[in-house]
Design a protein around this nucleic acid. Structure first.
Length: 192
DNA sequence: GGTAGGATGGGCT
DNA sequence: GCCCATCCTACCC
């Protein structure tokens, strides 16, 4: 497995981290996925960010040190994975929106029995947490810790790709900001 | 091919 | 009480 991304990788603005996370490998237990779609949520000037109204029990981790997981529960049924960016004391995170399944695909299929194609296993923020076995018990997990439950690794054999920038999916405020990024032409993106 | 609506519960006013 | 960073099914071309 290629090296784990160090904390300094995450200690930058969320837009830079979001763009640079594309193509990296997310590992959870026996499952591995390549990150193909992300959204940035800013610490200031972004009314769509959960951190926009300050520190609460839910949002505390977003204001903590970078390189940790922020996992939240949504629509009574699903969980979404974010990665905390920016130095401790400031807010900023990246929502992981889609993965290309790389390893543990049989296990992903067991966890997502309704998915017909491999591309459907993790092509959405709620789908990928199910496929990878990620839930709220991972909230606050340190992604830079070796032997941790959730890690992000450099992609050793990554081919070059173009990045497409759009507005974010499913939000009502600050909707005009161009903060969604995905790998051009990838078949596992949620909304191509 | 497309879309409208339901499921389901925690967070916050 | 309302909103929500979603997903799936049913139903209609």
């Amino acid at each position: 497995m290629p090296p784990i991304l160090p904390r300094k990788f995450y200690a930058r603005d969320p837009v830079s981290v979001a763009q640079d996370l594309l193509g990296k490998l997310l590992v959870s237990g026996q499952t591995t996925g390549r990150i193909v779609e992300v959204e940035a949520y800013l610490g200031t000037g972004d009314q769509a960010a959960h951190s926009a109204r300050g520190i609460t029990d839910r949002t505390r981790v977003i204001f903590g040190p970078p390189g940790h997981a922020y996992v939240y529960f949504i629509y009574g049924m699903y969980e979404c994975l974010n990665i905390v960016t920016s130095p401790a004391g400031t807010a900023g995170c990246v929502l992981i929106r889609a993965l290309e399944p790389i390893a543990g695909i049989d296990l992903m299929r067991e966890r997502r029995p309704r998915a017909k194609r491999i591309e459907d296993l993790a092509n959405g923020p709620g789908k990928l947490t199910l496929a990878m076995g990620i839930d709220r018990s991972r909230n606050g997990a340190d992604l830079t810790r070796r032997a941790g439950p959730l890690t992000v690794h450099n992609a050793s054999t990554a081919l070059p790709f173009d990045i497409v920038t759009t507005t974010r999916i499913g939000i009502g405020v600050s909707a005009e900001l161009p903060l969604r990024f995905y790998i051009a032409g990838n078949s596992c993106v949620s909304v191509p």
